[in-house]
């Protein structure tokens, strides 16, 4: 124990041999404490007494921005469908393989690995519940889903370009005859 400390020992403070020094509160510590208190006062005053935005307002502002960005980036389905060449899609073996993989991961749980239907409808027959079985209809079904029927919208989950190949892949089920097909649903479209 240095003699310098002995000077600062508080007389009479001895508990089971533990003594206490009389060091002052560290300055930087005091300043930190006061600064946090000042922050607290201003922060509380701004949000709860003055005109600080409520959490609902803050969310609304952010959502406006997000929705504006979505609006601006919205692709026109008609344009896309008009500009594609289905032959070209089909001939890109690599992308079609990827589409098959995506189908297995995301779609097969409901539509079956061979599109035979299970939780969701059969994709191999000529009966369609929502779309007319054309390219645009199936693409739209994939993109927007039918949330009320239990099919989710995939437009944000599956890459934009990849959706086209997936559509082509799904249409490729037409005319195949997998085992255990689900009974037809929807309307017959020849």
């Amino acid at each position: 124990m240095s003699s310098q400390d002995d000077d600062k020992l508080i007389e009479g403070h001895d508990y089971d041999g533990i003594q206490e020094l009389n060091n002052p509160l560290p300055k930087w510590w005091m300043i930190t404490f006061f600064l946090t208190i000042i922050f607290a006062i201003f922060y509380y005053a701004y949000y709860e007494i003055l005109s600080g935005p409520s959490s609902d307002q803050e969310l609304a502002t952010k959502m406006q921005k997000v929705e504006a960005a979505q609006e601006a980036a919205k692709p026109s389905l008609d344009k896309i469908v008009a500009s594609i060449n289905r032959e070209e899609l089909r001939s890109d073996a690599q992308m079609m393989k990827k589409a098959k993989k995506i189908f297995k991961r995301k779609c097969a749980a409901c539509h079956g690995r061979e599109g035979q239907g299970m939780i969701g409808p059969n994709l191999t027959d000529k009966y369609w519940m929502h779309s007319k079985g054309d390219f645009k209809g199936v693409l739209e079904a994939i993109r927007e889903g039918f949330p009320e029927k239990g099919m989710q919208a995939w437009k944000e989950i599956i890459d934009e370009n990849q959706q086209l190949y997936l559509t082509e892949f799904v249409l490729g089920f037409q005319g195949t005859n997998p085992a255990n097909p689900k009974e037809p649903q929807g309307e017959l479209i020849e």
């Binding site: 124990m1 400390d5 020992l9 533990i18 003594q19 206490e20 020094l21 060091n23 002052p24 509160l25």
Partner: peptide, 8 residues
């Protein structure tokens, strides 16, 4: 060792 600061 003694406790650093009683005040603290």
């Amino acid at each position: 060792r003694p406790v650093y600061s009683y005040k603290l």
